Structures are given as structure tokens and as C-alpha cells.
Computed example of a mutant assay.
Amino acid sequence: MKRVVTGVLVTAVAALGTAAPARAAAHALAAQNDPVKALKSQFAPGKGVKFTDLTTMIEDGKGEPYLKRSGSFQFGRAGIVASDISSDRAVPLEDPTANPNGVFGPARTIRVGAISYARGGSYSDKMPSGKSWYKDKSGMTGDVSGWFSQLVNVAEPQTLATLLKGAKKSGRGYSGTTTFGRLAKVSPWFRATLPLRSSDKTVVTFKLTLGRHDLPQRLTTSFSAGGIFDTPYWESRTISVETRYTGWGSRVSIKAPPASKVTTKLEDHDGI
């Protein structure tokens, strides 16, 4: 009888010892079967993800490389707490003097919380002496180049959930449409990137591919440029952006620039 009781106790202790790992494995499996849960599982202080963007401008069925970006998101416990994005023209100008104000030239934007710091690009010729960063309390995510880059941020759980709802699934890919208006409701990133736009009815077509652990790997979006600018010139053009994500869970540390290099006032050298 003692041997029977002892055997039961040993079995019970063994079960207790394996219960926690089993539950953890079950939670991990559940997250892998749900892209939104998988994304939320990445949120931890000091962790993040890297990405690259390539924007193509399409007119009359012909596409030309327009802008390229590289950057990273830093996460906290609830989501994105900072971003660091560098941008440039996809194809260098043959004559740099044709773009004297530096619009779409090399630029960098650091965003910490809801405050952004920009250098280069459209700010390149407006900095006071000794300053190199412009502090923007409106918190735009990427200067003017952000308007023509990836407006859809699938590192935001609500944005990802909005895309997946009603999307067509094929293997590890999803495809569908959304609108500027829907994105504006759920995405802080979209609102900060494109605070002004001509139409919230603008349709955004997307294709999303998931990689390991059901985390975003590749996102392609396209929309009419007329959704940003209500002019005949832009209405005839389509903006297409491909974003690739790498290094989920890698260490990311993004900090504001040194205060001594930051200004809140820009100089007007052109009398505009």
C-alpha cells in the first residue's frame, strides 16, 4: 500500500513540475496561430524590429523607384514607444542643384513618444548655426518623405487587426483593402504621418506575408496619390510601398538627439 501511495505522490509531483512549461508552450502556440497575439508577445522594453521601405511611383502603368527608407521601432510593454527612420531618394539626382531645398534628399527622423526630431531633407537649409535637429511637437513620423512612404504600420495591434478582418487568406499571406478613414480611426502612426489629406475615402490595397511565429515579414500597399493631394497632377499617380521587417525581438535603443543640437525655430533663407 505504501508503494502505491508513494507512486501516486511521485506522479503528482512530476505533473506539477511539467504543468508550467506545458502551459507556456500552449500560450506560445496560441500566439503563433494568431498574428495579433504574436505581435503583442514582442512588446517588451528595449526590444523592437527593423524595417526597410521602397516606394514606387506609378503613372500610366509604369513604375519608377521614388524613395527608400530604413529604420527601426522600439517597443515598450504596450507597443511602439520610439522610431528612428532614415530616408533618401531611391535614385540619386543627376543634377543635385535641381533640388536646392533638399526635399526628399537624405533625411532622418527620430520620434520618442509623441515628439519628433528631424534633420536633413526639407530642413537641411533652414537650421540655425550650430543646430542640426528640428524639434517638432506635432510628432510627424518622417518629415515630408513620410507622406510618400509606408502609411500602414502593422507593428500596431489595432492596425494589424483591422487589416486581417475580412482579408483573404492564402497560406501565410493576407490580401485586401482598407481606407484612409479606417486607418485614421485605429492608427496613431497613420494620423501622425499624414495629418492632412484630401480624402479619407481613399482606398488602400494591401498584401501581407507572415514569417516565423506569424510575425509580419513583408507588407505591400498601394493607393492613389490624389488621396494626399487633390490636384490633377497627383490624381493620375499611384503610390506603391513595399516594407520588409527583420530582427523581431532584437535589442533597439532610440534616444532623442543631444539638446545642444536641437532647435524649435527654423530660419527662412529664401524669404518665403
Rank of each mutant, 00 (worst) to 15 (best):
S224F: 01
R89Q: 14
R237G: 02
P35E: 03
T193D: 11
I239Q: 13
L29G: 10
K185D: 05
S87Q: 10
T209G: 10
S122Y: 12
T178K: 11
Y66W: 11
K40M: 07
R218F: 01
S138C: 07
A28H: 10
A22Q: 08
P45N: 07
A25P: 11
A30Y: 04
A25E: 13
T220Q: 14
V5H: 12
V144S: 06
Q32L: 02
A14L: 13
G271S: 09
A12N: 12
R69W: 03
A192C: 05
N33C: 00
A25N: 03
R244D: 09
A28W: 06
R191L: 03
T56H: 01
A256W: 05
D200M: 11
P106M: 02
W234I: 00
L196G: 00
G79L: 08
G120P: 05
A14T: 14
S149R: 13
G102Y: 00
A167T: 05
I272H: 15
P188E: 03
K168M: 01
A25Y: 11
A19C: 06
R23H: 03
K165D: 15
V144T: 05
L93C: 05
H269G: 09
K255Q: 11
Y123S: 07
K62T: 15
R89P: 09
T178H: 11
P92N: 06
K137A: 10
M1H: 10
P100Y: 03
G61Q: 02
G226I: 07
F43E: 09
A82Y: 06
T193G: 08
P195V: 04
G271H: 07
I272Y: 09
G113F: 08
V10T: 15
H269S: 12
R3D: 07
G71Y: 11
T109E: 05
K40S: 06
S236C: 02
K37N: 02
T6K: 12
R244W: 00
A155C: 14
E267G: 08
D268C: 05
W234S: 04
K126H: 10
R237L: 10
S240C: 00
R108F: 09
I85P: 01
T221D: 07
R218D: 14
T205D: 03
N33D: 13
R108V: 09
G271L: 12
I115F: 01
G46N: 04
K2L: 14
